[in-house]
Measured scan of single mutants.
Amino acid sequence: GQVNVNNTTYTFPTPKLAKEFAQKAAKKYNLTVHVSGNTVTVK
């Protein structure tokens, strides 16, 4: 799974890890998680 945070893309071996990372990043920066297919964007 891929996660985009502040124009930086992070790649994870599983969608589960990507989702967990996205949720932590969203909480940390007070942003929202947007899911589109296999790509998760935090903005």
Rank of each mutant, 00 (worst) to 15 (best):
G1K: 12
G1A: 12
G1M: 13
G1Q: 12
Q2S: 13
V3M: 10
V3Q: 12
V3L: 11
V3I: 12
V3D: 12
N4G: 11
V5W: 12
N6Y: 14
N6R: 14
N6T: 13
N6D: 09
N7W: 15
N7P: 08
N7T: 15
N7M: 15
N7V: 15
T8I: 15
T8K: 14
T9Q: 09
T9D: 04
T9H: 07
Y10M: 05
Y10F: 10
Y10H: 05
Y10R: 04
T11W: 14
F12G: 01
F12R: 00
F12T: 01
P13K: 10
P13N: 06
P13Y: 04
T14G: 04
T14H: 04
T14K: 02
P15Y: 07
P15W: 06
P15Q: 10
P15T: 09
P15E: 14
K16F: 06
K16Y: 06
L17V: 04
L17C: 09
L17E: 10
A18F: 01
A18D: 00
A18H: 00
K19D: 06
K19Q: 14
K19T: 06
E20P: 00
E20Y: 08
E20D: 08
F21I: 02
F21D: 00
A22G: 04
A22S: 03
A22P: 00
Q23Y: 10
Q23L: 10
K24Q: 11
K24D: 04
K24C: 15
K24V: 11
K24A: 09
A25Y: 14
A25V: 15
A25N: 03
A26R: 15
A26D: 03
A26V: 11
A26I: 10
K27W: 06
K27G: 05
K27D: 08
K28Y: 15
K28V: 09
Y29V: 06
T32C: 12
T32L: 07
T32F: 05
V33F: 08
H34Q: 11
H34N: 07
V35R: 05
V35E: 02
V35W: 07
S36L: 10
S36A: 09
S36P: 00
G37P: 00
N38D: 03
N38T: 09
T39A: 05
T39W: 03
T39Y: 04
V40W: 03
V40A: 04
V40M: 02
V40L: 02
V40Q: 00
T41K: 04
T41F: 07
K43N: 10
K43Y: 15
K43G: 08
